[in-house]
Simulated assay, not measured.
Amino acid sequence: MKAVTLLLAAATFAVHAHHDEHESHGHGAHEHGHGHLNFVVDGDQLMIELQAPAADLVGFEHAARSDEEKAQYAKAVARLQQPDALFRLDPAAGCKLTHQELQAAKEDHDHEHDHDHDHDKAGADHDEHQHDESGHADFGAMYTYTCATPAKLTGLEASLFSVYPSLEKLSVQGILPAGQTAAELTPSANKLSW
């Protein structure tokens, strides 16, 4: 039941964040340097969802083309698979990562799909497609933890700013047993307490 609650909360966050982005920036545009961090604490479980422009997490927003870009993309994926380098939780809470899921940029998938089926497409059209799609690519991950002593989980530190130097702020929304919280984290103010 707790997993269902966490998944529903995550879906709510994703829909809300997507709606807000459409309302404030118009038609899916996003702001480079600005990510979103959503979390839910439910019983002994903590779920964290991170979304940010691919330009900030990967270094570019188009599908990786060259060997160098493919290596850069693989490095970005490897970083996202190591949440201990991105977030710090109070060790006294005894939180252990139990599940993680990467969310690749939708436009990269669409581009790869189109690329696989449109081999005869002219180079100019291909580049124009990249330009139109790349401005809106997001990338992220979802992490689920089980905490041995959840009462000692009283905050988190976003250490990811040192991993992603172009990331300037995170808009944070959280659902806690005592209610909701919201904040903005930056490299100089990267701790959230509850």
Rank of each mutant, 00 (worst) to 15 (best):
W194A: 01
S159Q: 13
F60T: 11
L167R: 09
G94V: 00
K169Y: 00
Y73R: 12
A74K: 13
I175A: 12
L192N: 04
A74G: 12
Q51F: 07
G26T: 01
P187L: 04
H19F: 04
A93W: 02
L57K: 02
P91D: 11
H25K: 15
H22A: 01
L50P: 10
L6Q: 08
V77K: 08
Q82P: 06
L153G: 00
G123R: 07
A54L: 02
H115Y: 06
H25D: 02
H32D: 13
M142R: 15
M47D: 05
H129K: 11
L57F: 14
V58L: 09
D132M: 10
P83D: 00
A105W: 06
Q81R: 14
A124Y: 00
V41M: 09
Q103F: 06
A148F: 01
T5M: 07
L37V: 11
A64S: 05
G135V: 08
E101S: 10
L89E: 01
A54I: 11
Q173L: 15
A78L: 08
T181V: 13
Q81P: 08
H27R: 07
E68C: 05
P53T: 02
D108V: 12
E69R: 13
Q180K: 14
E168I: 00
L8C: 10
A105H: 02
H25N: 13
T12F: 09
E69M: 12
F161A: 06
K191H: 13
I175W: 02
Q72W: 04
P150E: 08
S66C: 06
E23P: 13
L57A: 08
V58M: 01
L8V: 14
V40E: 12
R79H: 03
